[in-house]
């Protein structure tokens, strides 16, 4: 008897794959990367991007070989980590910064067993390591196009502590010429990390991810709303709070990372709130001007706890539980 191959249902599969998802996120980061290159120099930023991405993919391949983890270095996740890392570092970073950052980022994922097992957002671990190990190189902020050394609006804000006029007064008193307006903040004409400065570019990418259903709106919205509410509560300028520093980049691309954020919609809202809260607490009360990186990393710790909760199925009732 001629036997056929059998398997259990379903017998068809959608064409969605891990690689597709990773490539979609990379594509969503593309506008921000382009703006970064245009603002800070095509060659300089292009080189950082290439080094970051290549190091991430190579480190993943090497670590998977050493740690006996099945090869998946070409599935796009390592490239994405590298890309995310470069977009969150200073445009004046020397070439070895993305090299170290990407390696640490991938290491922080592979030591826990690779894809899906890492408790922390790999790119942010890389960034945090650079920030703490090389504080000077990590915080060399320059104005777009002119490449004149400047402070980030948040650095200034820590000094000024009142609206946007105050910011410009501080700049003037420091001998600077850059004039900050809401419009320049919106377009990213300010000091900051490579990918975090231009809201329209990030928004295009994020809307693409929402439209293709790669990410949900929940974490991002609850994060941003928390930031807005707390800014009002702490009597801070809401626009300055949102458009300077990395909050938008964090809310769009970092806090929404699948692996390190909770599964259930309700918990995603809680997670978003937590990140927003930690972020504003760090900005308002700590010695650091910015806190997105650490806010996300702190909430990453809580994710496994949030993931303990179990959803009630359709048709659930208390009687069923008792019987």
């Amino acid at each position: 008897m001629n036997l056929l191959s059998i398997s259990s249902s379903p017998h068809i599969r959608s064409n969605i794959t891990t690689r597709n998802i990773m490539l979609y996120v990379c594509a969503a980061l593309f506008p921000s990367a382009i703006v970064g290159m245009a603002y800070y120099g095509w060659w300089q930023i292009g080189l950082l991007l290439v080094i970051g991405v290549l190091t991430a993919v190579l480190s993943e391949a090497i670590l998977q070989k050493i740690l006996h983890i099945p090869y998946s270095y070409l599935d796009g996740s390592a490239a994405l980590t590298g890309l995310l890392l470069v977009l969150t570092i200073s445009p004046m970073s020397p070439w070895w910064m993305p090299l170290i950052g990407s390696f640490v980022a991938i290491l922080s994922k592979q030591v826990f067993g690779g894809m899906g097992q890492n408790p922390f957002n790999p790119a942010l671990i890389g960034r945090a390591t650079l920030l703490l190990s090389f504080p000077i190189e990590s915080t060399q902020w320059v104005s777009p196009f002119t490449h004149l050394t400047t402070a980030t609006p948040l650095n200034l804000y820590k000094m000024a502590n009142f609206g946007i006029e105050g910011l410009n007064q501080v700049i003037a008193s420091l001998g600077g010429t850059l004039q900050l307006t809401y419009r320049s903040l919106l377009l990213g004409l300010r000091g900051g990390s490579i990918g975090e400065i231009c809201l329209p570019a990030m928004l295009v990418g994020f809307l693409f991810l929402l439209f293709t259903k790669v990410v949900s709106w929940r974490i991002t919205c609850s994060y941003l709303i928390t930031v807005i509410v707390l800014s009002l509560l702490f009597k801070l300028d809401v626009v300055v709070m949102l458009l300077s520093g990395g909050i938008v980049f964090g809310a769009f691309f970092m806090a929404t990372d699948y692996v390190t954020s909770p599964l259930l919609p309700k918990n995603q809202l809680i997670f978003g709130f937590g990140v927003g809260f930690m972020n504003m607490v760090i900005r308002r009360f700590s010695g650091m001007p910015e806190g997105t990186t650490f806010a996300v990393l702190i909430m990453n710790i809580i994710t496994p706890l949030l993931d303990q909760s179990i959803k009630k199925p359709v048709g659930f009732s208390k009687e069923v539980k008792q019987s």
Binding site: T18, G114, M115, V259
Partner: peptide
């Protein structure tokens, strides 16, 4: 024929 079920690691997309 069969669809290849090459099981990869869960990315916790939900």
């Amino acid at each position: 024929g069969n669809i290849p079920y090459q099981e990869n690691q869960c990315i916790r997309c939900g």
